[in-house]
Design a protein around this nucleic acid. Structure first.
Lengths: 338, 338
DNA sequence: CTGTTAGCGCGTTCAA
DNA sequence: TTGAACGCGCTAACAG
């Protein structure tokens, strides 16, 4: 069924080697021969067997991506950019979904078995201090790039281990500057679980930023899932209290959408009576309950791929990357109505 | 760096074959030997080279998934379920993103090169009558499973080509029954482009269903992208007309979210003055401008994988699958205020 | 129960 | 400019 180099060679009365070289455009094959070989390959529908090839050249042109969920916006933030960047470089991507440390290790092992040259990893949110996947990969000496979060047991400058995270401290400042300019003084904070370093960083940025700007106290709540439902629930609680904030800063768009829904359901108007901000610039920030002021980040996936590709081609070490975001102002923030 | 069977064998004073068999739990190796081999493999961090293995056994345990976009909800509908189902069966998934017919063919070729045993394909919306990807794959005799849409040039019962689509005609009836029960008579329709068969089917279901139920005329608009922006724009136009519908049936949740935003922005209330329905049950249907009545479908990805797996293991032909949806009633539909 | 032989499809090396 | 021998890591088939 499948045509091999040998089949082409026999059909053409050439050696396997000549055909192989012709197809790879080697310098030591005549133009006429090359043309003949090409035509035959095209005609018979030949395509090379990459398993055999990578067995020989010890490069698979394959990378692995492990994430907790493909359907989530978080996963999309990484997978789309990574896959596109890889394709452009002629590299194929294996995906694996892992919802536990055990599955993470299993997926990574399967990918290594298939010859993955690097593992890209968006870990699930977890309070575990060591990652079985990391252990498996680093033991094999493969490069590993973490997205968004990374476990406690990666040393700084491990060389073959790196990460691409968002500058959430910077995001906090962008939002605080904006709200402060609009005259807000009392803000509430709905953030992610502190086991996620980037959210811990976000919280720190908010706390320090609020103090630095002489804004009022912050009521802070840390959520594990960062789902809209949680934002909605917590917002309701806050709205029942007598002293309300004038703005709610959220750790992602989903929570912001949930909070916005609760505010609107209460009959309050946004932003005249309450401002809301998110992080992410995803679909929910455009078409949620209200068009959200948020912080947009470029694709982490592409950045991570470039990081690795450069080192693969040119050598050197992979330096961790902290990607900066930019403020996107939409309808959910404004000056308080007098 | 990487440990081979041979390294284990030398370390243990066994033959390569004995080690290979032991690790595969072959019946003709002693329990004691197996234990020794396992321990050594574990200790030295052995994992098999799948390239070499698949070269030999002529099965790669690899499938390919090509889709227009990983970030979209549509892609997620397929990729998550497919990947999870594959993993459970010990099969790895290659993903490729393709935004043109040329890229589709390229991706498919790359996957075949890596030994993909089947190609799963979510085609982009296109009016082309033939698919280069389909041609490449069927020429190679590989199984190909289309999701949601399939090109005009797949013959019925091609055996090695199949598809998993949503029963959009049924979805139309579910929604119409619901709206009809609520007393709606004048409905508008915002659907997908008719080049997408499932949306053509949806439109047909709506048109016939409206007639069958003695409901009023339908103002229908077909959109290519089915993006929220389009729903919002079209809804605004409709709201400017003197004779308004009392309900808007949308081809997906995104358009419904856009339409809902336009309605609310106009100061109308949902559902007291206008009902809206979507299809999809995605994030936007929960946390869009309003919680949407929609039609939920089970994961097409998983269904498609099972379709292929059964045939791979047991032989036979792959029959196309039409997956039924179920109505999910939320806050966007109701009786008209008198 | 364990080992030997052979070869999957390709590319590196070196000779013609 | 072309080709022959060899081996990548693994396993099917067969001996011992």
């Amino acid at each position: 069924m499948r045509v091999r180099l040998r089949d082409l060679a026999e059909g053409l009365g050439l050696s396997v080697m000549a055909v192989s070289k012709a197809l790879r455009d080697a310098p030591d094959i005549g133009a006429a021969t090359k043309a003949r070989v090409r035509a035959e390959a095209e005609k018979r529908g030949y395509w090379p067997n990459e398993s055999a090839r990578s067995l020989r050249v010890k490069q698979s042109g394959l990378i692995g991506l492990v994430l907790p969920d493909l359907a989530s916006e978080e996963g999309a933030l990484v997978s789309g950019g990574l896959t596109e960047a890889a394709q452009e470089a002629g590299i194929s991507v294996l995906v694996g979904i892992a919802r536990s440390g055990k599955q993470e290790a299993e997926q990574v092992r399967a990918m290594m078995g298939r010859g993955a040259e690097a593992i890209f990893f968006l870990p699930r949110i977890s309070t575990e201090h060591r990652s079985a996947a990391l252990e498996v990969v680093s033991r094999a000496g493969l490069p590993m790039i973490f997205f968004k979060r990374y476990p406690a047991d990666v040393g700084p400058g491990s060389g073959r281990v790196s990460w691409v995270v968002r500058d959430m401290g910077g995001a906090a400042n962008l939002v605080l500057d904006h709200l402060s300019d609009l005259g807000h003084r009392r803000v509430a904070y709905f953030g992610g679980h502190s086991a996620d370093r980037s959210h811990a960083e976000h919280l720190r940025g908010i706390q320090e930023g609020v103090v630095a700007r002489g804004m009022g106290r912050v009521g802070g709540i840390q959520m594990v899932g960062l789902q809209p439902e949680e934002g909605e629930k917590e917002m309701k609680k806050i709205l029942e209290k007598k002293e309300r904030p004038t703005a709610v800063i959220c750790g992602n768009d989903a929570v912001a959408a949930g909070a916005a829904r609760a505010i609107l359901a209460m009959g309050l108007s946004i932003p005249a009576e309450m401002s809301v901000t998110g992080v992410g610039d995803g679909e929910l920030s455009h078409y949620g309950p209200i068009s959200l002021t948020t912080v947009r980040f470029p694709s982490l996936g592409r950045a991570g791929f470039d990081l690795w590709k450069k080192v693969r081609d040119e050598g050197g070490e992979m330096n961790p990357l902290i990607v900066k975001g930019e403020l996107v102002v939409r309808d959910s923030t404004g000056r308080l109505k007098e």
